[in-house]
């Protein structure tokens, strides 16, 4: 475990000594809760419509596919007209695009970002690498099956899929959300132990709390 995460005694600027245990003090270790749809069906459908038409993507590119997301902001593709925009912070984002291969080091960051997003949240696996490893199927450092580590709503096959494929996938995702089937966040909370076991199996130096929201 890294030095800055270890339990230690710190002397403050006023000479007062206190004990710091970063993993317990700075994070909350409470497990995630499932939030089932709470309102009447008509309200839920209205909310799902709003959710589907206002997709905010986390600005986190994990692999080579990140380069395919950038053109979507440009005049040629302009994803904004579909209600899609990018947010720089996981707190405000709804959609996490795993854009291409996911190395173990990035997986750790991806999990942290995913857990900080608010329910309901969606994951889109972009590229063959997230489906079965793609061209990195025998790599020592990339995962081969994304849905073992976080619930995935939609996969886009290809190596790499073109920006048009991403635009089409947004439309598909909208259908999934409108149908009320995009309950990945709840699936994550319900199968939390299974997901955690899978994650810990590949991330050898687990130096963060089990759930960081």
């Amino acid at each position: 475990m890294k030095e800055e995460l270890q339990k230690r005694t710190v002397k403050g600027p006023d000479g007062f000594e206190f004990e710091v245990d970063p993993l317990n003090d700075y994070y909350c270790s409470e497990a995630p809760k499932a939030h089932p749809p709470a309102y009447a069906k008509i309200v839920e459908s209205f909310f799902n419509w709003a959710r589907s038409e206002s997709i905010w993507i986390l600005g986190f590119g994990t692999g080579c596919g990140a380069i395919e997301m950038r053109p979507l902001m440009t005049p040629r593709f302009d994803a904004y007209r579909f209600g899609v925009q990018w947010r720089p912070t996981p707190r405000q984002a709804n959609l996490f695009i795993i854009s291409g291969y996911l190395s173990v080091k990035t997986l750790k960051r991806a999990i942290r970002s995913y857990e900080q997003m608010q329910n309901p949240k969606y994951v889109l696996g972009l590229g063959s690498c997230t489906i079965n490893g793609g061209m990195y199927w025998d790599s020592y450092n990339t995962i081969k099956k994304l849905d073992d580590y976080m619930p995935v709503d939609l996969f886009v096959a290809g190596c790499m899929p073109r920006p048009e494929a991403l635009l089409a996938s947004f439309e598909e995702l909208k259908k999934v959300i409108k149908a009320g089937k995009a309950e990945g966040a709840n699936a994550y909370a319900e199968n939390f132990d299974w997901y955690k076991a899978n994650q810990k199996k590949v991330i050898k130096d687990w130096d963060m709390p089990d759930y960081n929201w």
């Binding site: 489906i131 079965n132 490893g133 199927w137 025998d138 790599s139 020592y140 990339t142 995962i143 081969k144 099956k145 073992d148 899978n198 199996k201 590949v202």
Partner: peptide, 18 residues
């Protein structure tokens, strides 16, 4: 002498049908 395919097969779950 590091067998990357063997390591990959042992460590990461893989999807059937490839």
């Amino acid at each position: 002498d590091f067998d990357t395919k063997k390591y990959s097969d042992e460590t990461y779950a893989h999807r059937e049908g490839r």
